[in-house]
C-alpha cells in the first residue's frame, strides 16, 4: 500500500510553472530517493506534502488522508527534517525535544525516556548547553532527533546530508537504513551516491514532472548503457580491434569501448574469441556498470 500519493499536482510561482502535474506513489516501508537539479521543485514538493505550501491543483494523500494547506493534524504521523533546521537558541536540546514531543502528543511518561534515547542515537550530549552555541552539524543531528522522536510513519528529509561531514553522513545513512520497514522515508539530495546506497526507489524530477520513477535496478536495466572497455598495448592494435568488433565499438587512443545489450557473459565470450582469433590480446578488460549519474544525465538531458 502506498503511504504517500501525489496525483497530478501543479504549482506556479508567478507565471513560472514549477510543477506540471506531478504524480507518484511511495510504497509503505520503502526508502524513496528524490533527485533533481537545483530549483527543480523538490523542496516545494516536500513543503506541499507537509502542508506548508499551497497546492494549485491536484491532490496529495498521506495514508489515504488528503493534505490541506495549513492543516496540521496529519503531520503528527510525519517527521520532517529541513535542510537547515531552525531552533530556539535559548533552549537546551532536551527542552526543545520536550516541546516537540508534547506537540506531537507523546505521553509524559514516555517522553523523557525517548528523548534520552534519541539524543544518544544522534550522539548529542545531555547537558545544559543551549542550542545557540551549536555547530551546523550538531543542529543537523538535533534535527534528526526531532524528526524521529514521534516514530513517524513517514519521514521527509530535505537534503539531509548536505551539512554533515563524511563520517556524520555515513552514520546518518546507516541510521536511515536501520529505519527501513518501520518508517517510509522520502529524501531529496544532490548526492547521487547516497541515493544509490540506500534507496529502494528513485524519482527523478525534471521539468516539472517525474521523468523516472522506479526501483534502482529497474532503472538500471531501462537506461542501461552497458559498456566493456578494453585496453591495448598500442594505438595501432586498438584501432585494429575496433575495426574487427564492428560499429558498436570505437577506439580512443589505446582503448576500445564496446557498447552492448544483453547478457555480459555471452557477449564477453564472443568478443574475446573474436579478438583471440585475430591475435589481438587486450592488457585489460573492464565491465562498466551503469550508475545513477548516467541515468540522471540521460533522463534530464
Amino acid at each position: 500500500m502506498a503511504i504517500l500519493e501525489l496525483h497530478d499536482v501543479k504549482k506556479n510561482f508567478g507565471d513560472k510553472q514549477v510543477l506540471k502535474g506531478l504524480t507518484f506513489e511511495v510504497p509503505e516501508g520503502s526508502i524513496f530517493g528524490f533527485v533533481g537539479e537545483n530549483s527543480a521543485g523538490k523542496t516545494t514538493t516536500m513543503k506541499m506534502i507537509l502542508g506548508l505550501e499551497t497546492i494549485d491543483s491536484g491532490q496529495i494523500l498521506i495514508d489515504g488522508k488528503r493534505v490541506h494547506y495549513g492543516n496540521s493534524l496529519i503531520n503528527r504521523m510525519v517527521g520532517y527534517l529541513p535542510d537547515v533546521p531552525k531552533y530556539y537558541g535559548y533552549m537546551t536540546p532536551k527542552e526543545y525535544l520536550t516541546l516537540c514531543g508534547q506537540l506531537t502528543g507523546i505521553s509524559k511518561n514516555d517522553l523523557s525516556d525517548r528523548i534520552e534515547k534519541m539524543l544518544k542515537i544522534v550522539d548529542l550530549p545531555i547537558n545544559k548547553h543551549r542550542i545557540h552555541g551549536f555547530s551546523r552539524g550538531m543542529k543537523q543531528r538535533l534535527g534528526i532527533a526531532q524528526a524521529l522522536l514521534n516514530h513517524p510513519k513517514l519521514l521527509i528529509c530535505d537534503e539531509p546530508t548536505s551539512a554533515l561531514d563524511p563520517i556524520g553522513r555515513s552514520e546518518f545513512l546507516n541510521l536511515l537504513t536501520s529505519l527501513k520497514g518501520e518508517t517510509t522515508i522520502v529524501f531529496s539530495t544532490h548526492i547521487l551516491t547516497d541515493v544509490e546506497r540506500i534507496s529502494d526507489y528513485v524519482g527523478i524530477l525534471h521539468d516539472g514532472v517525474l521523468k523516472a520513477n522506479d526501483s534502482l535496478d529497474n532503472l538500471k536495466t531501462q537506461y542501461a548503457k552497458s559498456q566493456i572497455i578494453f585496453e591495448f598495448i598500442s594505438e595501432d592494435t586498438a584501432e585494429k580491434a575496433a575495426q574487427i568488433l564492428g560499429k558498436n565499438s570505437h577506439n580512443n587512443q589505446k582503448q576500445v569501448i564496446l557498447n552492448y545489450t544483453g547478457d555480459y557473459q555471452i557477449i564477453a565470450e564472443t568478443v574475446l574469441n573474436t579478438l583471440l582469433q585475430s591475435h589481438l590480446i587486450p592488457i585489460s578488460m573492464n565491465r562498466q556498470k551503469t550508475n545513477l549519474e548516467d541515468i540522471f544525465m540521460e533522463v534530464t538531458a
Binding site: G70, S72, N75, R76, P82, K86, Y87, L103, Q146
Partner: peptide, 15 residues
C-alpha cells in the same frame, strides 16, 4: 522570518 515555527507546525501545532 527565522523559520522557527516550521518545525513546530509540522509537528501538529495549530497556527
Amino acid at each position: 522570518s527565522q523559520g522557527t515555527l516550521v518545525n513546530l507546525v509540522t509537528k501538529g501545532l495549530p497556527r
